[in-house]
């Protein structure tokens, strides 16, 4: 009995040591590394966004931006958001007045996002796009996700809207079975369809079924996708 107990204790201790020595939140840790790689790859497409008090990562076709705040106490509307051209949606039948309140329409652009909090974020040293992203990871970890089937990280922008990027731009899918895009802007099509959009005719956005993880469950849903390869 004593032997069994000591074996059990040893295994538990080993687990403890393993857990202690490792950063258990490997997704959060990996997302920072890969986001940094994306920022580097995007080069001048990553800019300061003064209007929203943060940083903007603009798609290579300039049709959509992922914006994240550097200080939530100062964000005017959202802390993480997508800003994209309204024209393709209007051309596909969108009545902007029918969009829910989470959407803003201005200057022929649409914006959708989420307010994460009102914290005055503190930084050591210069404020950089990566450091602002790290604030999301450390303070609002729930916003960071991992898309298993595509081996993508993502930031949840609320209501099923996402910004995704590849964990490893050279090998995207975790089992090497598929090569996917390096960044993907993802919109939930439901409010657009409700506002009159014919989802199959939105120029520049693919309307597709994708498998996402909802509460840990792989679930197939419809999405508008704008994917890009950076390398």
């Amino acid at each position: 009995m004593r032997r069994k107990l000591s074996l059990l204790l040893t295994i538990t201790a080993l687990l403890g040591i393993f857990a202690g020595c490792s950063n258990l939140d490997v997704v959060a840790k990996g997302s920072v590394t890969s986001f940094d790689a994306i920022l580097t790859a995007m080069g001048d497409k990553v800019t300061a966004d003064e209007m929203n008090g943060g940083w903007a990562l603009e798609a290579p076709d300039n049709g959509v931006k992922f914006i994240w705040s550097e200080d939530y106490s100062k964000s005017p509307l959202h802390d993480v958001m997508l800003e994209f051209d309204a024209a393709p949606f209007i051309d596909a039948g969108l009545d902007t007045d029918m969009l829910p309140d989470s959407f803003a329409y201005y200057d022929n652009k649409l914006m959708v996002g989420v307010k994460l909090g009102n914290d005055a974020l503190k930084y050591s040293g210069d404020v950089t796009p990566l450091k602002s992203y790290e604030q999301i990871v450390s303070k609002y970890r729930k916003s960071i996700g991992y898309h298993t089937s595509l081996d993508h990280y993502n930031v949840a922008i609320g209501d099923g809207n996402l910004f995704e990027w590849a964990k490893d731009m050279s090998v995207n899918a975790y089992d090497n079975s598929a090569q996917d895009k390096d960044i993907v802007f993802v919109l939930d099509p439901a409010p657009f369809i409700a506002a009159g959009v014919d989802p199959n005719t939105v120029d520049g956005w693919a309307f597709a079924k994708v498998t996402v993880d909802i509460d840990g469950k792989p679930t197939e849903v419809d999405k508008f996708l704008k994917p890009f390869n950076l390398k």
Binding site: L8, I11, A19, V27, I144, G145, Y146, D213
Partner: peptide, 28 residues
């Protein structure tokens, strides 16, 4: 109902370690 902190897609390593911690007594 599922604890968010154990979401396998969000915290895969923690999830795996919790499973190990639960299987060890069974094996023992």
């Amino acid at each position: 109902p599922f604890p968010w902190g154990l979401n396998p897609m969000t915290f895969p390593l923690l999830y795996a370690l919790v499973e190990i911690a639960l299987v060890v007594p069974c094996v023992a």
